[in-house]
Design a protein around this nucleic acid. Structure first.
Lengths: 249, 249
DNA sequence: CAAATAGTGTCTTTCAGACAATATGAC
DNA sequence: GTCATATTGTCTGAAAGACACTATTTG
């Protein structure tokens, strides 16, 4: 059987129907707090409940679907807004047979790290989307509590051994701003002096722009030097989270 | 609209047909070499070419589908064979629109770590499946070259910070055997003395059984103490790969 | 000036890796 | 005996974390 005749005989309807969706755990930092993008569901199932943004995959790659959903829900326009700076990576896929009461739905979850984006109040779809501090994101629809928890843990872990913290900042940032990103994501303060020396000692993490901030801090302090993201894709050595007491046993 | 009437009005055929499959990157160590399970494809597309074992997801969880495919291809029977000791984890999902010429196929890839299993010569499906040393696994069907590369890198990485190397050994093993697992997966020899001390110093990695091997090594040496896997799920501190020269930039 | 922040210096402890040394048992 | 392997010891250098200190800027 050659490929052409095989294709002719191939009937997709031979297989039980499955829908494939993407869900996005989009994280950003607003007012020093780590926030996740949630939408209020307008229809069944789980109408009125909050959920992660997502939707059906069209004729596009999975990553494209995730970025499209993110753009739609935030009301931002690729090419116009800062959407290019969003870091997007696949999280994992959820496919238990009963996770959606309507039919078999397999959902590919993506994790997005975004610099501070405007509150999504613009377009149609974005009307019911908003940023929620992570500790308030509970009782989500479907299995999204689990998806969100997985995404949050992945984000916290990735900050340890990759330079992705810079995905939460502007293109230029101070070491102090970078430290606040770590503090927000990990949920604990870091020692300023040790963090400073550590970041500069990791090759390729940040590189100096030569400039400094125009003013000192709001509550005092000298002008800080400015940095941009370096070319490292992995941090060697890593910045490990302080709380390692709770070894996972 | 309540949920019942919604379900009545819901037609799965409203969505473009997508098939969901699982593919398995199953790794084991045979004769000191890291091997991957491959199947010879019997029909189009890619007939005659080698591929990762896999198939369509039925009414089951994704992990169950992966384990079922693995059992079918190896000819092993859950409950009878050592299939319970196989470690299975989700790798990632591949869903580019053109990755299968027949239709849109989204494939959820799983990574399996298995202790040395018998060569699959038994049952019907398993006839064309065999273990191949990883360096010989090339030119696979579909996008399986990429899937396999991702799985291999994940396995190498996981050995650094989890105790999963013990998934490749018997329930009891010597430190030397454990070192050979690391050597096989990472593809480089490790210093015996340093490795020995290191493994014993990581809390919860291994625990002594009190026993020793009956005989010394084949080419001489004292009897080695026996250990079993400990209760740690993460290694603190981690066993980092020696070759960190090639920083990923 | 008081307070806050940037950035640096120092010390201790832990750990990785190089290397050595000793002990045991197969052949 | 010879050799491979198991196991332990020693040393050096890198790095983390605690703490202290100076400099700078805002209010």
């Amino acid at each position: 059987m050659d490929e052409a005749s095989f294709l002719a005989a191939y009937d997709p309807r031979d297989y039980p129907p499955v829908a494939v969706t993407v869900d996005v755990v989009a994280l950003t930092i607003r007012d020093g707090k780590l926030c996740v993008l949630l939408v209020e569901r307008g229809h069944q199932p789980f109408a009125g409940q909050r959920a992660l943004p997502g939707g059906f995959v069209r004729i596009e790659s999975l990553a494209e679907a995730a970025l499209r959903e993110l753009a739609e829900e935030t009301g931002l326009t690729p090419g116009v807004d800062d959407l290019e700076r969003v870091h997007l990576e696949q999280l994992r896929t959820y496919g238990n047979p009963d996770r959606d009461p309507r039919m078999r739905v397999v959902s590919v979850a993506y994790l997005a790290f975004a610099p501070s984006l405007p509150e999504p109040t613009a377009g149609s779809d974005a009307a019911r989307a908003y940023w929620v501090p992570v500790e308030e994101a509970k009782d989500l629809a479907f299995d999204h509590d689990e998806v969100f928890a997985d995404g949050l843990e992945r984000a916290r872990s990735k900050l340890e051994y990759t330079p992705l913290a810079t995905a939460f900042t502007g293109t230029e940032f101070t070491i102090g701003e970078l430290r606040q990103v770590y503090a927000a994501v990990w949920g604990e303060e870091l020692h300023a002096g040790n963090f400073h020396r550590k970041v500069l000692s990791v090759p390729g993490f940040v590189e100096s722009t030569g400039g400094t901030t125009a003013k000192g801090g709001e509550r005092g302090g000298p002008k800080a030097k400015l940095y941009r993201a370096g070319d490292a894709r992995l941090l060697h050595p890593a910045l490990l989270r302080p709380t390692r007491e709770d070894r996972v046993r």
